[in-house]
Design a protein around this nucleic acid. Sequence first.
RNA 1: AGCGGUAUCGUCUAGGGGUCAGGAUCGCAGAUUCUCAUUCUGCUGACACGGGUUCAAAUCCCGUUACCGCCGCCA
Length: 489
Amino acid sequence: MDEIRVRIAPSPSGNLHIGTARTALFNYLFAKKNNGKYVLRIEDTDAERTSQEYIDNIFDSLKALGLNWDEGPDVGGEYGPYTQSERFDIYPKYVQMLLDKGFAYECFCTPEELEAEKELATQNKQAYVYSKKCENLTEEQKAKLKAEGRKPAVRFSVSKAQKAFHDSSILHFEDLVKGDLHQDTDLIGDFVILKSNGTPTYNFAVVIDDMLMKISHIIRGEDHISNTFKQILIYEALGAKVPRFGHLGMILAPDRSKLSKRHGATAVSEFVEKGYLTEALLNFVALLGWAPSDGVEIKSLEQIAQDFRINEVSSSNSVFEYDKLNWMNGQYIKKMDIKELTQKAKPFLSCYDLNELGEEKLEKVIAATREPITILSDLTYDTAYFFGNDVQYEEGVKEKNIDTNIAQDILKYFDSQLDSYDFDNEEKLHEQLADFRTYFKEKFSIKPKETMWTIRAALTGRTRGADMGVILDVLGKDKVKYRIKKAII
RNA sequence: AGCGGUAUCGUCUAGGGGUCAGGAUCGCAGAUUCUCAUUCUGCUGACACGGGUUCAAAUCCCGUUACCGCCGCCA
């Protein structure tokens, strides 16, 4: 059997889209599972929409996700170049081949003429199919048109290719995820393969590239199904081996439309900026259309690769909802190595002076605040009280937990005890805090919870937050005293 | 309009002629810890509709509907 080779071919007209990331993931998984090669090709034929910034973003995002490629523009490989714009000189040869074999012809139609044909079709409520009026132009006619300065495009003759290789006009192929797919080729118009400006169209360039790069399996979104029939015909006309195809359902926004900017983040990098971990993002997106055989949903890339079967991928669309992504991101945040997490958290703490705490204390802060959060950006607010001298009271907290008589008693007593607290020993602090709580419970029947709320409110301005022992420890005696005194009326 | 695809809890999904239709997430309720968080336990919640085939249909077939995609000298 030939080597399994798959590819991901993003077009750099934007940052790496989450949908493209999922397609990349499934290709990667398929390659890993089958000991194949996974190649990256940049499809930048449309120079106007392409930019280096997007190319960099695609590279960075893919790498951040851990979807490293075996061959690609940067790492090279046997079948390069892997950037389509550097391959322009190889397409004309194949266009000529099709021209010679009679599977393609020059078309001199102007945009206006084409537009008129389409207009007519819509008026008659018919599907538009190119009229083929240039298919049988004589050499003289062509020469005349060229003399007039008309630059021809090259069209593929669908019917000729179809008749040469198939008995019926219905073309079938066995899709890796959707099973038998078919299309009446009479309904496919003769499509352009080479534009009049000399550049190949997408449908032609992909076939040539995939053929030359020996791609064996093409896994992509189902928006490409109709292209597949055209591409199969080109492979056949070229005398090339037709690869296997697999079409994935699309990722939809909650309103069932295509996921776009108005729904929020769409690019992997935007999710990262919002505070999502690439590991969680990848895991989440894997679950859109695929389910683990053991029911365990949180899995590493390698674990997923072991369990992955392309024919088990769902063939329907899936809706992208944040609920589960948030939960999953939270799970990853809880489990991540604390040093690594601290590094990833830093961009979200740029509004604070991190030197105030130092690396060791910062790690303590992150460890103490990571539990309840779902995205890293939650840390911005949740760690606020560890920085600066003064405290920002949340609404109602001062009135409810500081300014009452009991609260004042608690604070005064706490203040008087503070000198005996061992601020260099977190474990000791916990015990002392526990004793303090018990004291108020036994003596005044104040719930431990409420005692702590008061202390917490004075120290953090909130009734919710990190472990109190950690707060005392990180803040240190001076700051704790300062904040407590400030709260006492 | 045409062509192609898809249809199981709100969402992601498992299953597939005989199941109490399973899990996850969300929501709700309880429990736990100093914390309206976390964690744990429990609960609510689905086979799009209509016809067949069959002893038996969510599962197979046909139709309808809905949704998605494609109909570019974009990729």
